[in-house]
Design a protein around this nucleic acid. Sequence first.
DNA 1: CTAGACTTCAAACGATTGTTTGAAACGCGG
DNA 2: CCGCGTTTCAAACAATCGTTTGAAGTCTAG
Lengths: 206, 206
Amino acid sequence: MQQSAQFSTRQKILGAAEALFAERGFAGASLRQVTAAAKVNLAAVNYHFGSKDNLIEEVFRRRLDELSRRRLEQLAKLEAAGDASLETVLDAFITPALELSLDRKGGSVFMRVLARAFAEHNSNLRTFLSDNYGYVLKDFAAAFARLLPQLDKQELYWRLDIAVGALTYAMADFGMIQRRSGESEREHREQMAKHLIHFTAAGLRA
Amino acid sequence: MQQSAQFSTRQKILGAAEALFAERGFAGASLRQVTAAAKVNLAAVNYHFGSKDNLIEEVFRRRLDELSRRRLEQLAKLEAAGDASLETVLDAFITPALELSLDRKGGSVFMRVLARAFAEHNSNLRTFLSDNYGYVLKDFAAAFARLLPQLDKQELYWRLDIAVGALTYAMADFGMIQRRSGESEREHREQMAKHLIHFTAAGLRA
DNA sequence: CTAGACTTCAAACGATTGTTTGAAACGCGG
DNA sequence: CCGCGTTTCAAACAATCGTTTGAAGTCTAG
């Protein structure tokens, strides 16, 4: 493990792949485009990751391990404090993603990559994500179930399904709302999170 | 397949392309896969559509022309009847898509193709859709603005943006909810539409 | 029945895809 | 300094990509 300039070859590839997957999709971004953007040799991908599919999985792993940890940590914290409400639980889910988005370069495009994964409906990717990170959604679903005891299981699942869609789409910034001039990226994202929590909480308890 | 005799080469290509674009994305589905599924010659795509990009646009045109017409027709009808509410306007938007989904083969996968288009954030595709069908969203936004006069423009746009995301993802059936055994596709879709309207209306007026 | 336009076909085009190769370059403990 | 494991490199692999070609087939108007 050697740092060449500032980032290792591995990290450079992961960063470039993340950006290009967000922009052109997994099939649309070639390894030659990725390695050119990362300024590394083409063969480096197969040397460090084995295959393009493994690279894709690693792009997710790099972000989702910590994102999942932080989300569950936030959730546990407010349940320990007896502070759980629809708004605070939604906040526990959204804020870690928001902070990731505001992290140094790459964080914001990752949410777009994640939304792409949802569109890859039949792929191994869904299985990979479900197998490795499904427990996060499960824990949050359980928290919502406790907060909405009047809803039967089916009703709850419908609403959570819709909520996940709204969150995924919004966090990927797929919508038409542009950042206003004179508004920082941070302010824009925080506005979005605020509206997202408000909207989704209302939808869940409707 | 008897369809081979019933549908023109053009229609067979459009149907196969729609299904494969839904499953593998625009870059992920090759023309050879499309023409093999359609059981037509490879060169037929370029003969009838000129290029893959034109084929993609035509896949949208075939469905969106009528879908847009029906949506605006429903909207106009209930405004003429003085029946406009958040629920009825949402219904005017959703029901035509629901009927399309329940149409004979192809309709249901098209909503998934449409959601894919949202993920193609930088592509010409977004421009094509916005230029040709943006007026539909504009008209619906105006209707919602009338129904939510207490919201300022910014606030309204945030909520509509989130609502569009929820609708797009749900109609594409990207979620985890599966059709229950003993439940028909129609029943499943109608349940979804019902919950979608309820959820989104609550979020909009929250 | 024939002429001419429309459609289909197999084959090939150059470009690009993911992956593999073997040698060169590198970093570091001895 | 040497030797050895790790990493990078240019080059090439077969496969597949979107597109084009010109001939063969199909259809209909006159």
